[in-house]
Design a protein around this nucleic acid. Structure first.
Lengths: 197, 197
DNA sequence: CTCCAATGTTTACGACGTAAACATAGGTCG
DNA sequence: CGACCTATGTTTACGTCGTAAACATTGGAG
């Protein structure tokens, strides 16, 4: 019995889905536990059977975001030939994600407590980063990158891409179209890779 | 007549100062208009004589942040010799600012509405960016940077530095000390500049 | 078939953002 | 010098939120 009985079936997943949708609509500021419950046709206290508090629901939403982001980066990288191209594609996918889901993206990096209080979200984030590291390592092995410590190079690339994603999705650059931002991102990554050779 | 009479003297400034302190203590989540009023020894509705709503107070705090940030970048840049060094120093100051005031920094870039609803904050942010552009132009004139469009180069540098600032101040890198982050930031900027020559 | 643990609901509380009605004081004009 | 007007604070009030506690329902294990 999924839908109209006293018990819901899979309320937890429904709450995460409704929460994600709500965040996309109104941003993290307007995001409300009670509204999420309303949209799930459930009393305002029901979420507490699945999440200890509000931050745990947003952490679950963030976690799903990292999983999604990692998957999109992997998919984008797979489509390309050389290690260097794969790295650029993955970075592009990162920026693309931030542009399509700006509020979701913001939530993923907003909760600084995630680390200790929400280990699952943290693990998903680390996974996404690990994917990036492996792409960097592949570039190094193909002699496309200087032989700095892997973590250092990966962090530099991550920061470059993350900065573009954050600023662009927050409307801080004046670039109007998505395509312009993505073209800019590729240009930035190419320049960075040149400097790291 | 500053302090203990019915009228306050300069409540607006006091509210901004108290708000800044509160944000440093509890972050943007715990930030509350009523607590700011309490700390200013004023009723909870008094702030409404100076700010239309909560977001306008946070915008004022953000504005002050951008002014401060621009000043610190200017000061850091002035201390160095070559245009290239000046650019690196300014970027370092940017990261340093984010590390010392992580919550303030977050607030500065969190309010996506700033643009239309809070033009003063927007102007302060644009000022800070303009300072960066001028440093980039100086590098180009000294033939330290390739002759890409100035805005493009400035945005690349900004994004690099902003990414480091955001991720490091959010604890996303595993770097433990401030010094380690700053050293990393310099390394990243040097690499980037190499790629842009 | 019965009963229990899991999962929802109701009710309640204090804090918050905000609006409206009210109070005070400090500078302006007679 | 004194009355008043407008700036700036205060009080009171309302609806919403996060959260806790007490209560209700139900699907499945014995």
């Amino acid at each position: 019995m999924a839908h109209d009985s006293y018990h819901h079936g899979d309320l937890r997943a429904a709450l995460v889905a409704a929460g994600l949708e709500l965040i996309r609509e109104v941003g993290a500021e307007g995001f409300t536990l009670r509204e999420v419950a309303r949209r799930s046709n459930v009393s305002h206290a029901a979420p507490y059977r699945h999440f200890r508090d509000k931050s745990e629901l947003t952490a679950a939403i963030a976690e799903e975001g990292f999983t999604l982001l990692a998957a999109e980066m992997r998919r984008a990288a797979k489509a390309a030939g050389t290690p260097r191209q794969r790295l650029v594609r993955a970075g592009r996918a990162y920026v693309h994600f931030a542009l399509r889901r700006p509020e979701h993206f913001k939530v993923m990096f907003a909760a600084r407590l995630d680390a200790e209080r929400h280990p699952a979200a943290r693990r998903a984030a680390d996974d996404a980063f690990a994917g990036l590291v492996s792409l960097v390592v592949a570039c190094q092995e193909a002699k496309q990158l200087r032989d700095l410590p892997r973590l250092t190079v990966a962090r530099i690339a991550w920061a470059q891409v993350h900065g573009i994603a954050t600023l662009a999705s927050g409307g801080q650059f004046q670039l109007q179209t998505r395509a312009a931002v993505l073209a800019f991102a590729e240009q930035a990554m190419e320049s960075l890779i040149e400097g790291l050779r």
